[in-house]
Design a protein around this nucleic acid. Structure first.
Lengths: 359, 359
DNA sequence: AATTAGCACTCGAAGGAAAAGAGTGCTAGC
DNA sequence: GCTAGCACTCTTTTCCTTCGAGTGCTAATT
């Protein structure tokens, strides 16, 4: 059922006033804004309460939006906000530095989001599954060599292997061709015991090393697809009036600090058209979030890497401004990670431009 | 001036009772424990107050230890506590996994310390300065090669370099000998502009790549000596009665979450004999810590790598148990990082034992 | 029919007095 | 030197009152 224009206006004004002040809103306060008497507002508010969009903390307090009220506000009433020049510039600035490890980057993004929104924030990156593109073995000395693995996403991993017995340069070379023949283009699930065993049979006197290198390879592949997750700014919660009760604050902080729960208990699929998603109070699965809200945005680099950034706060969250900021940051991340300077995905590589050549 | 035995007993009992309950301690409560009447205790307490070891929140409350009182307790009265079997086992268990990146490890150690002590904890690792032991260059394709750098601390770093022009296999080989000749054994301060320029002059047609590889090298060396710092469990603060005031909690949490301040504002030198150090309330330099205490322990791998773990809490901290746990964890870390299984320091290397050889 | 003014009513917040309770300091006696 | 006793102090708790914001309803107005 459709609301009258005036009801929409009242609900909007009420939600925004409550977001700003955290105080229940009375009819008098709205009368001025809407342009009719407080009695009229009271009648309207009474109906809105009947529809479940507003709530009364107690008889003689003003009204407060219910979760359904917030939902309606977020879906239909809220203004899409633009970032100020300064904010946009700050974000671009922070994101300018590429070429970082993914954990490090997620950490910075979390910090940035949190300090910008003044709410706790998290940042999550998920890499697509990778395979090995090529192996290189570097002979260091009789007891030591280095395995260097180049993955399909152009990440490079390495490991120093120290042996209690000696090997020759040629044995390492053999090992190298062996692995390049058998283990390239293989994802981590495809590294089976039988593959390892058949490689060992072909390995001659270097069979003892196969299992070691194979397990390192699996580690790399597992690491490559694993998600990086960072949480930042949890202490911002404490400045919100709804968390002046230390017990409530504690419960939610615990939940937030446990990155695993954030990932598992938030429905990170089914983003709206613009890659944004808001879950309000009881819509959240996790018990700890039943009277908090989460705003999240997804980004996508186009080459299989996806991720999310999000913000946790009281249901009385400044949805409009948070949504705008998250969208902007997410868009920036998509650009950064898939941009022309990093055409093949994120990794610690270095692109040399013609202009860098010394004359 | 030396305290009578009875005064020591009273002070000890009072501190421990206050640590346990967070309530000011009255003379009656102590009378039972000490074995004389409350009036006697009152007289003694009055003198202890005069000496500045106790404080009265107000006339009709019991007494509370002053910072000086805690200091005396920590220095002379407190029992060196032993860990329970279970606790020791839990720590050993957690520390069993070696072979991790240093950031990851510090993160886990922070978590472990925090969950064990129920206070916020931090873990800090500082690597000694390193130099490059050798360079390897892997030719991938005409536009791409990988630089692999083996450092003196046996860490291996790599970078994929993508070029806007083609190079030949031989050019890469030249580059390799060039860098191995000029840049090995060099610390990051020793990489000067003139070194780079003289190498470029010797580089022939690969001069354009010298600066790139050199700057990557500096990055590696800088990264190798940089400290890894992790903070965990900040939310434990909220369960302490002294931080029921959200403003206080907020201020301290902000301080703690800012790892940099923790490092710079804590006097991490001058550990006591057993590698432990306690700073109580106003002894702390940082304004935010003026009514908190910090217990920290140092570890040392013997090969130049040092680090600290620490715990932040109210002055009413359970010094005895925290000190025991920190000592144990620090000792465990020393062992882990310098132990027989990792004889050359921490890095992501892999040591193959004879028994690992397949038969 | 919709809006508004007026008014009685409700209920939490704020303030204040009184009572309760815990602990001290002092004095006198053991 | 220790202890019992007691008056005194000061916080905490409780209960009561007052105050005020805001509602819901009714009747008047447009």
């Amino acid at each position: 059922m459709e609301l009258s224009d005036r009801k929409k206006k009242i609900l909007t004004a009420l939600v925004e006033s409550y977001i700003a002040t955290a105080e229940p809103v009375g009819s008098k306060a709205l009368a001025g804004v809407i342009g009719c008497s407080s009695a009229t507002i009271r009648n309207e508010m009474s109906e809105l309460t009947g529809m479940g969009l507003l709530e009364q903390p107690h008889t003689s307090a003003g009204r407060v939006p219910s979760p359904a009220g917030y939902r309606l506000y977020v879906n239909e009433l809220m203004q899409r906000q633009k970032l100020s020049e300064a904010e946009a510039a700050a974000i671009n600035d922070k994101l300018a530095k590429k070429d970082e490890q993914i954990e490090q980057l997620m950490n910075e993004v979390g910090q940035l989001t949190s300090s910008l929104t003044q709410y706790p924030a998290y940042a999550l990156a998920m890499k697509p599954p990778a395979a090995v593109k090529r192996f290189d073995f570097i002979y260091v000395d009789a007891n030591t060599f280095i395995v260097v693995v180049l993955l399909t996403d152009n990440t490079v991993k390495n490991k120093l292997v120290h042996l209690p017995f000696s090997v020759h340069q040629e044995q390492i070379t053999t090992l190298s061709s062996l692995f390049n023949a058998n283990f390239t283009g293989v994802t981590d699930e495809e590294i089976t015991d039988s593959l390892i065993r058949s490689t060992e049979r072909a390995a001659g006197d270097t069979y003892g090393l196969v299992a070691v290198v194979a397990s390192f390879t699996m580690e790399c592949l597992a690491g490559a697809k694993s998600a990086a997750m960072q949480v930042a700014g949890a202490s911002h919660l404490l400045s919100q009036p709804e968390f002046r009760d230390p017990d409530k604050a504690h419960a939610l902080m615990n939940f937030i600090s446990d990155g695993g729960r954030l990932v598992s208990d938030l429905p990170h699929m089914g983003m709206e058209r613009d890659g944004l998603r808001v879950t309000i109070g009881p819509e959240n699965l996790a018990e700890e979030l039943k009277d908090s809200s989460v705003v999240m945005a997804s980004y996508d680099t186009g080459d299989g890497m996806r991720g999310y950034i999000g913000v946790v706060g009281p249901t009385r969250m400044d949805y409009s401004s948070v949504a705008a900021k998250l969208s902007y940051i997410a868009a920036g991340l998509s650009r950064l990670l898939a941009g022309p300077d990093a055409p093949e995905g994120l990794n610690n590589k270095l692109v040399l431009k013609e202009s860098d050549r010394h004359e």
